[in-house]
Design a protein around this nucleic acid. Structure first.
Lengths: 240, 240
DNA sequence: AGGTATTTTTGTGTATACATGATGGCCGAT
DNA sequence: ATCGGCCATCATGTATACACAAAAATACCT
């Protein structure tokens, strides 16, 4: 695969957005970017167009590009979309799964359990939190892979990126309780069991409930964040 | 809303693809396009990037753009994605619907019924077919609107475009029987009833079955088309 | 004659120049 | 003093020129 400057610019800007260096609402002037990246404006514009398609950037004619910001409605819609896709994927996974594929899902589930139990003992969450998040996505990713629908996978991956941006700003500070993590684990267990027993309807139900809980959790979290940052309209990820 | 050349190029190319003038696999040289449209290559490239995001075009570095072509697997995945979204939307619609919104869905349903009954009498399908298709999308669109999730709506609209391209080439010749149309009508009735009675689970089930039937129908249709066009690799919408 | 190497040509990717429309400050009028 | 219009500045949209890679055509060798 040939690598062109457009890709360089794309990865550069995307990384900055995902890491929160470019925060929501921030204008992305093609001139500045081209100087910063070291390429001309043309590939930068190309990259911005791709990022717009990803839903990370918004481009208004004659105004320019800026990092996408969301209101609460849009965020809820996003979660709904994701719920629809992951739920469907869980159903497919329950239908398609082979033994070895089940193995991988189970591996992610157990890895999460181990981490949560470690957390009960040590108060030091710092890196465990990262591990937990990693295993969480591994679990969901495993299911999506087993579903074997490449378009749905692609779409969910796209949504994940947007989610990452939205939940990013508050310095990664976790408002989750241990009880919450326990609940997540239980949800995952339910999902796994349904997939293991090839029960399509149960898998869908379990995943739908899981996603619903997640939505409610994040909404709550965002509500809190919102109040605390109400004065600075710019630089927040979600307003409304 | 300001209108720029990029939009002109986008609409131009998109229209040609949707109408089948640019058929699947056909290379889209930016130079030719720019001459044909009467703008420079820059906005054409922009437009092609957008069309790539829409899933209508594929761009390979150093090679160029071409109209996207699909294999059977990808098409099935597409239908799955659509099934997931429309099913979810039906559930939302059943939950959210107001009386007046229900009215609109019902209107589309009855309009379709009238057309199908007209078809029973007159053999002249020519324009009735167009009307039927129009009312069909109106029905689905009404449900999606009632679901009130803008992202899901946007995504379904995108998929509809791709579908249109895929099912387009065979001169609009309908392989559907009247019995088929009856079945579609019954499915719609079921979906409507579920939404009317605010039964979320039933609405989802009805829509899922409806989409499933549609997939099977189109797969069959495509299988036939495929065999008949096997020799000409280029210019077919779906290969495999 | 067939296949391969080489040249030619075409088209992409990129940089850059230019024009138009937007943004922000300044000045005058009320 | 504040509001509204005018002007300067700047960034965007667009066109175009250039370099290099890929494809096509031609010539060459076996």
């Amino acid at each position: 695969m040939e690598l062109v400057n457009t890709d360089v610019a794309y990865k550069f800007i995307r990384e900055k957005i995902l890491s929160g260096v470019y925060s929501a609402g921030m204008p992305l002037a093609s001139k500045n970017l081209s100087k910063e990246i070291g390429v001309s404006r043309t590939p930068v514009r190309d990259a911005l167009r791709q990022l717009e398609a990803d839903g990370l950037v918004i481009i208004k004619p004659r105004i320019g590009a800026s990092v996408k910001s969301m209101d609460l409605k849009e965020f809820k819609d996003l979660c709904g979309l994701r719920q629809a896709l992951e739920t469907y994927a869980a159903g497919l996974a329950a239908h398609n799964r082979t033994e070895s594929e089940l193995e991988e899902i189970h591996g992610a589930l157990e890895a999460m359990r181990v981490i949560v139990e470690k957390m009960l003992k040590t108060a030091n969450d710092k890196e465990l939190l990262g591990d937990l998040a990693r295993e969480d996505v591994r679990f969901h990713l495993a299911i999506i892979n087993v579903a074997k629908n490449d378009l749905i996978k692609k779409e969910i991956m796209r949504l994940s990126l947007i989610n990452r941006v939205v939940s990013n700003p508050p310095k990664g500070k976790s408002t989750e309780t241990l009880a919450n993590r326990r609940t997540v684990l239980e949800s995952h267990q339910e999902i796994f069991d349904a997939i293991a027993s090839k029960n399509v309807a149960a898998a869908k139900n379990a995943m739908e409930r899981h996603q619903q809980k997640n939505l409610e959790k994040v909404i709550l979290m965002m509500g809190v964040k919102e109040r605390s940052k109400f004065h600075s309209e710019l630089g927040i990820a979600v307003k409304g």
